[in-house]
């Protein structure tokens, strides 16, 4: 595994690997070379259409967020943790019920490729 790297848009998978209104997970190496799990959600009817956040649920303490249900609360796109059902904003990473935040990543679809900025 490489050690420190510069941030850039990197391809994760094909757009066809996404599941509509649902999540998938990806494994990346962060700036220090550590493994990092990402949850990627594809919500075509929403403004941003695609979102990426950390996969680790700091409340349930497990890597499960990509398996949560997505939706919106007061127009804020959210994922609900499959463990204890707290909502995390997909835009800001903020937890709507408790003092917790998860990391948020820039993500885009370019030429049918899903790309993450890291």
């Amino acid at each position: 595994m490489t050690t420190t790297t510069n941030k850039a848009w990197r391809t994760i998978c094909n757009a066809s690997d996404l599941v509509k209104d649902s999540g998938i997970s990806a494994l990346i190496a962060d700036a220090t070379g550590e493994d990092e799990q990402i949850a990627i959600f594809h919500i075509p009817n929403s403004e941003e259409k695609i979102y990426a956040v950390g996969n680790y649920d700091p409340i349930g303490q497990a890597n499960v967020l990509y398996r949560g249900l997505v939706g919106c609360i007061d127009d804020e796109p959210v994922v609900s943790s499959p463990l204890y059902k707290q909502h995390y904003s997909l835009k800001t990473g903020r937890c709507l019920q408790e003092e917790q935040t998860i990391s948020v990543y820039d993500i885009r679809i370019e030429n049918e490729q899903v790309q993450l900025f890291y």
Binding site: D21, I43, N45, S46, G68, L69, V70, G71, C72, I73, D75, P77, V78, S80, K85
Partner: peptide, 10 residues
């Protein structure tokens, strides 16, 4: 309305 949520979807 909206996108739904973990209550109405199931």
């Amino acid at each position: 309305k909206g996108l739904g949520c973990e209550i109405c979807k199931p």
